[in-house]
Simulated assay, not measured.
Amino acid sequence: MMSSNHFRFKKIIYDRVDDADVKVTSTSAIAQMYIRKQNIFTEKKIFPYAKMEDLRLDLLPKIRVMAQNHAGGQHPWTAMDDQELLKSAGLYGRDVVTGEEGFNLAALMLLGKDDVILNVAPTYVTDALVRKVNVDRYDDREIIKTNLIESYSQLLDFGRKNLPDKFFLEGAVNKSLRNTIVREMVSNTLMHREFTSSYTAKFVIEKDRMYVENANRATKEGFITVDNLEPNPKNPIIAAFFRNIGYADQLGSGVRKLFKYCKFYSGKEPEFVEGDVFRIIVPLDEEYSFDFGVNNKSVSETLDDKIATLESDLKRTKNKIETLDCDFETKEELEIVQLIKENPSITQKEIQQRTGISLGTVKRILPKLQKKGILVREGGKRFGRWIIK
């Protein structure tokens, strides 16, 4: 049995990953692989015996107000009764393949009562942890198993409780960097997770970083950047509901916001890792302030120090590669090309270890150098080598 992406040989299932065939043995991994390959939306699964009383209808008045405020004063949901609203949001419908009619998984995850959610998604949970002092266990913890609407509020409150809110002015307006960043991370991990997976979703705050991770119906693997971003809805019904009530913005805007505001919050860029487990990693630095730099230096003093260091590093690195006649934009590009010159078979992981540049940055720079015509890759990922033109 074969396809372009996976095949079975002697009752063993293999998944094609880049140029390699990887043996898949665990039941959960096989199920996740087929969900990914078939490109289906599990949120649309119909539960024909689910009833209105299985939902938290007491949340709908609040939802109408939120939708109205987000829309600027007028929203169609305000004039609808409960059943009309649920149908309008795509939470009630008919499966044209099976003929089943009723509430779908999206409805039960968004508005279901806790016991109903436990019934349809028994492994659904978000484990929120703080590991700053006690890194072996935790300093603070909340296990959240309720509907997505209330999970969103609880996770935001957890972030507000355990993260500093640094002063930042955007124009003349005081903007909460902490709330903006946590909002994007929380909405993403709730909207885009694969609810049929047994993988435990997490929101973890550590001393030098925080991250969310969740099961994912991935269409590709690797790092996501602003340059290679291709918005792909994993749960379009849930995502549309979140956008209607202001819990999320247009698809893809969250990535851009995090890249923008993380620089102001910690001075560093976030990482988005796409795979069967999706991760957003945001660096943290409690001493960093966009207004005062690090260790109470002013912005101008910090920038002067950085510029002087950068110029010195660039001068030293350029002297190392005088034989190369190339147009480099950063000292990281120079360092990477120098290492490749010394060892054309060097791996991305070895570059990261030798230079201290993050693996995500290495993965962004190499394609850029190829596009500029400085580097050419010969052979495959595992046994190939780099050629400097």
Rank of each mutant, 00 (worst) to 15 (best):
A308R: 14
A308Q: 10
S312W: 14
D313M: 14
L314F: 09
K315A: 14
R316A: 13
T317A: 15
K320V: 03
I321N: 02
I321R: 01
I321D: 00
E322M: 09
L324R: 00
D327Y: 03
E329F: 12
E329T: 13
T330H: 07
K331E: 06
K331F: 11
K331G: 07
E335W: 11
E335K: 14
Q338C: 10
L339H: 15
N343W: 06
I346L: 00
T347Y: 12
T347N: 09
Q348H: 10
Q348I: 04
Q348A: 10
K349S: 06
E350M: 09
I351H: 02
Q352R: 06
Q352N: 05
R354K: 15
T355Q: 02
G356A: 14
I357Q: 10
L359W: 03
G360M: 01
G360C: 00
T361W: 02
K363V: 02
R364M: 12
R364I: 08
R364K: 15
I365A: 11
L366E: 03
P367A: 13
P367M: 12
K368G: 07
L369W: 07
K372M: 11
K372Y: 12
G373F: 06
I374K: 11
L375F: 03
L375M: 08
E378N: 07
G380H: 05
K381F: 10
K381D: 07
R382Y: 12
F383V: 04
F383R: 11
G384N: 02
I387H: 08
I388E: 02
I388M: 06
K389P: 05
